[in-house]
Design a protein around this nucleic acid. Structure first.
Lengths: 224, 224
DNA sequence: TAGATTGTTAATCGATTAACAATC
DNA sequence: TAGATTGTTAATCGATTAACAATC
């Protein structure tokens, strides 16, 4: 019931984008990188980037920037992505497949160690090199494999049930893509992805855009 | 280059979750709903929910709550989801399929009017009832269909190119799932989804969890 | 009336932004 | 030295939280 809150949430959300861009820059031979450059790419104020980089504890070089390679490592360490971490994925539908095909996760130290589904047509098939196991084998396999967390890509109607089963099997953290808020005991970590949340923001931006166009006639820059 | 910022971003992000839960409650016959109930479900402070509901302009009834149906409509209106809105989707891979299969979007007034891909194996096939068209027909079709926005589910390496083409065809807004920050002219709305951002938060929560466990021995509830 | 809930106003907290000295 | 950038400290802004009167 305790609502522990995580500090620097916006900064943490930005980290993977920094990381991805930095890796690309490093691969292109950039030994140094400045917050100016990164900020321009992400359309952020440079000081935001500087503060975010400061969170990793890595000092930069005034007048020059940061050593690209060191910064990459610092961000990885900050996120705990410098250690291997294992996950099991429940739900082999298109969203599950998309996540399995997302190659960046390997860079982030995440390894999917088991994939489950309840659909007899899917069981035994392979998705991106991962065999789909019968969800009825989940409890036993999870107890054995002890994944660090579980990814839920199941229909919302059975997400709670699946999560309960996984908790009973020792899973302590969830990345939940189902459209429900899981009711979990204390100490269980849940990160829920609300795909429609992004659409809501897009819609609000579009509404605001239309409003601004009207407002512009009156010289009003912002509306809301 | 103007960095217009959207107010109430966190509230807007929560709206679809409220909406989904409220629709469920209404379908179960709940005529009234209180912020207490919704807050408990989402593990939020009730006052957060109250403030969010207030944004829609709908008054509640002290001692009772809100009329479920009216609240649903108010949220829909607040987000602009009470009007039909059309989109084209580029990229018929597993992520694109997942989005096409996401039934809630229909409730939100969003209609996908065209689906494009460059893969000859995919062109002509159907995904969730939508035919995949050759991306080479995109420009002409988009000019004709005039979708309100485009959804990008293409590899990051070609996202910028596809977006540029769409802008040239009159598209004014993007929901970008590719792992790049699009460089767009002023007046173009972009909402980027960073799937790894959620994973970063999950990782940070797990790290904090471990830290707290250690800290707990010293009676320290929070760490960092 | 008692209990529950809304709505409003003020207080707190944390993230963003500004300013500027220090450094390469 | 001049230009660019970092790092730090303070100011601002906005979201969350607290307190409580008003209402059903």
């Amino acid at each position: 019931m305790d609502r522990i809150k995580l500090p620097n949430t916006p900064s943490i959300r930005r980290m993977p984008t920094y990381l991805h861009k930095l890796i690309k820059l490093r691969d292109e031979g950039e030994v140094f990188v400045s917050t100016t450059l990164v900020a321009e790419y992400m359309n952020l104020d440079p000081i935001i980037v500087r503060k975010d980089f400061a969170l990793t504890g890595l000092p930069g070089m005034p007048g020059v920037g940061y050593k690209t390679g060191e910064l990459i490592n610092a961000i990885r360490h900050f996120l705990g992505w410098d250690r291997e971490c294992s996950a099991c994925l429940v739900g082999g539908g298109s969203l599950g497949s998309a996540l399995l095909g997302y190659e960046e996760f390997t860079d982030y130290g995440m390894r999917i160690v088991a994939l489950f589904d309840s659909d007899p047509d899917k069981i035994g098939r392979f998705v991106h090199g991962h065999e789909i196991f019968d969800v009825r084998r989940m409890k036993k396999m999870v107890r054995l494999l002890k994944p660090d967390f579980a990814i839920l890509c199941v229909p919302s109607s059975c997400a709670q049930m699946v999560a309960d089963e996984l908790v009973a099997s020792g899973v302590k953290a969830f990345w939940n893509f189902a459209n429900v808020c899981l009711q979990m005991p204390d100490g269980i970590v849940v990160q829920r992805e609300v795909i429609a949340g992004g659409f809501a923001l897009l819609s609000a931006k579009m509404l605001k855009g239309k409003g601004a166009a009207k407002g512009a006639l009156n010289g009003v820059a912002d509306c809301d």
